[in-house]
Design a protein around this nucleic acid. Sequence first.
DNA 1: TGTCCACTGGAAGGGAGGGCTT
DNA 2: AAGCCCTCCCTTCCAGTGGACA
Length: 414
Amino acid sequence: MSVDQIFDELLNRESLFINKRVLSHDYIPEILPHREAEIQKLAYILASALKGGKPSNVFMYGKTGTGKTAVAKYVLKKLIERGERLGLHFKYAYVNCRYRKTNYRVLVKICEEIGCRGLPETGLPADVIFDKIVKYIDERDQLVVIILDELDWLVKTSGDDILYQLTRINNELNKAQVSIIGITNDIKFKNYLDGRVLSSLSEESIVFRPYNSEQLYDILKQRAEMAFREGVVTEGALRLAAAYAGREHGDARRAIDLLRVAGEIAEREGASKILEEHIIKAVDEVDKDIIGATVRDLPLQEQLVLLAITVLKALGEQQITTGKVKNTYEKICTYLGYSPLSLRRLNDILSDLETLGIILAPVTSLGRYGRTKLISLEVDLKSLVKIFLEDSLYAAALSEFVGEEAIQKIVKAK
DNA sequence: TGTCCACTGGAAGGGAGGGCTT
DNA sequence: AAGCCCTCCCTTCCAGTGGACA
């Protein structure tokens, strides 16, 4: 089939989707099923702003895909709308700390979110940025809510200094007020916080329980009705997607991903309906997508270290120690023409990869044979190999150090 | 019981890339 | 332009360590 024919066929065929955007991660529907209680609680807390008061700071926790971010954004959107009708000026700043791991970058992002633009990514002292935020807010708004999503990432890497500053920001404001919503999926996270910060930040807290498969089914049904043409999604496919996502830990995001990818697969195959088989095919692809996105986002040196671990694993190495990773990593660097980093730095990279959930690296003593990290993969080796094969340089390194035959064996394994 | 391995992880500092002030 | 400050990423140095082994 020629490229033109492919385009023609695609244009002539009626798409299964009517609105694909409702299946994206940042879409927030008008109704959030099974989160009524959480919405109510947050609404009560924030409502005091409508009477000119300062809402309490809130701490929200729950696993990924339990609706924390969606609920926060949903209630704030409503609050801003209502405020506008009353002539009040509210705003919120959303920062995902996973992607802004230093205090400075979080502050810059808050600045951008509230509309104070044009700040440099580096160069200024952090307290200058802080003063800018204070001044900007005080001149314009009555209330700014700062949502710090995946807060544990920030605190683990940079400590809680910035949280302390932010929780005290109201002392510096004359007219305006700031409330903070902290979001995390790490329940133990509280242990890392200083007592003063903790008490100030968790004036109120909301816990998000995982969805069960029945609830996931309702969520999927709602999204399916908006995303696809009528009758495209079969009941069986919906039930299966809900069951798959419910089995992990009630992750709605994963359930919605499954539905979207299944839709794409069905469309590619020219099917007129989304069936259970499409969901089954989607499972593998969604997993690979999640790992792939994480790996592609890693800095070069972290990718090289992960590649070294992948090589060792692919070679069937039973006990992967820091020393072995260092050897293989250095060989790969030489082969690809990069200069390797020091052992000290490599050790930090291993800790980073562990924080990301890609590897497990507990420090273990091997007695006479020293103390080291024992490294194992937390993600599927096959998916990882496939991701590295997509890049021609990494593919060459895999072929050099593992061998073409062994790679094919891993890729084709069930 | 002491030794010793193979690291771990804190501390200090350097330099690249940037901005501000004078 | 010079001098000073910042952050970020990295290196060097080094004291500390858990447990198998002699």
